[in-house]
């Protein structure tokens, strides 16, 4: 990172514009040379602009039949907010794990250490997103700190099996989500930052799987396909899958799509 994310809005627009130019350029070049299906990846994501920000401001947290709605907005900012939601979910989940009966009473030393570390990592991810998103939210704390409501009532935090299965599910979902979000980002600085996080999520998933499952479960055939490729999901797929845990309604309609 040459500059941090706390740049002024003008710089963001300039960067995004150059990312658009670059993508168009690559499309043309790629098609000319290889005739590949680059168009499949044509971007519906758009540059961040003042207009986009005020759009999402207006739509933020509208009441919908008594449920709060968190509108992610569009473009790269929408993807970052989406990642922030997932990190908040993970941090809240592990808070419950380390407060729960399994971790406190029956986890062995290695499991206690692993969960404590992962909890720290997810809190750091969450707090980091909060900090880097702050400048984009025009100082409106309710947008930086949306009070997302989670529901973990389906999980028995006194039970190793329940904690392990759900931890693995969350980490695999995180890997899948970042893998699916990366190509939707226009700004390669954000892409690199997402890459720095996703491999840590994959290390978590592998470690938890190794502690819980058989000797090949760390990168099991249920998550790595015959081509040697890991999970990959769109934001819409991830949010639908996580909806059992997230009470707050998340509006992802404006996010970039494939």
């Amino acid at each position: 990172m040459k500059k941090n994310l706390e740049n002024d809005q003008k710089t963001i627009q300039e960067r995004s514009k150059s990312a658009v130019d670059r993508r168009k350029f690559l499309k043309i070049g790629g098609l000319a040379v290889a005739g590949t299906s680059l168009m499949l990846y044509s971007c519906e994501s758009e540059a961040l602009t003042e207009t986009d920000l005020s759009d999402s401001d207006e739509m933020f947290r509208k009441e919908n039949k008594g449920r709060q709605v968190y509108n992610l907005g569009k473009g790269d900012l929408g993807i970052l907010r989406y990642a922030y939601v997932l990190e908040q979910l993970e941090a809240a989940f592990y808070q419950n794990v380390v407060d729960g009966g399994y971790w406190m009473n029956s986890a062995n030393a290695e499991e206690k250490l692993v969960f404590e570390d992962i909890y720290q990592h997810e809190k750091i991810h969450r707090d980091w997103f909060e900090k880097v998103l702050m400048p984009f939210e025009n100082g409106k704390s309710e947008r930086v700190l949306p009070k997302l409501e989670f529901d973990f009532s389906s999980i028995n935090f006194n039970d190793r099996d329940s904690v392990m299965r759900n931890s693995i599910l969350l980490e695999d979902t995180g890997v899948s989500a970042y893998n699916g979000a990366g190509p939707l980002l226009m700004n390669t600085d954000y892409l690199l930052l997402a890459g720095k996080i996703v491999s840590v999520e994959a290390r978590h998933a592998s470690t938890l799987r190794s502690l819980y499952g058989n000797t090949k479960y760390f990168a099991g055939d249920d998550v790595v396909n015959e081509q040697g490729l890991d999970l990959f999901s769109t934001p819409q797929e991830v949010l639908a899958a996580a909806s059992g845990f997230i009470v707050t309604k998340i509006n992802a309609q404006q996010l970039p799509t494939y």
Binding site: R22, R23, L26, K27, G30, T36, S37, L38, L40, Y41, V175, Y178, N179, G182, P183, L185, T188, L191, G195, V198, S199, V200, E201, A202, R203, H204, A205, S206, T207, S210, F218, A219, V223, V224, Q227, G228, L229, D230, L231, F232
Partner: peptide, 21 residues
Amino acid sequence: AGTPYLAPALRIHSVEARHAA
């Protein structure tokens, strides 16, 4: 970035991270 090869590269990247751990 901006090529169809980014997605498979990311999906290999996380497999390598699983291996590494």
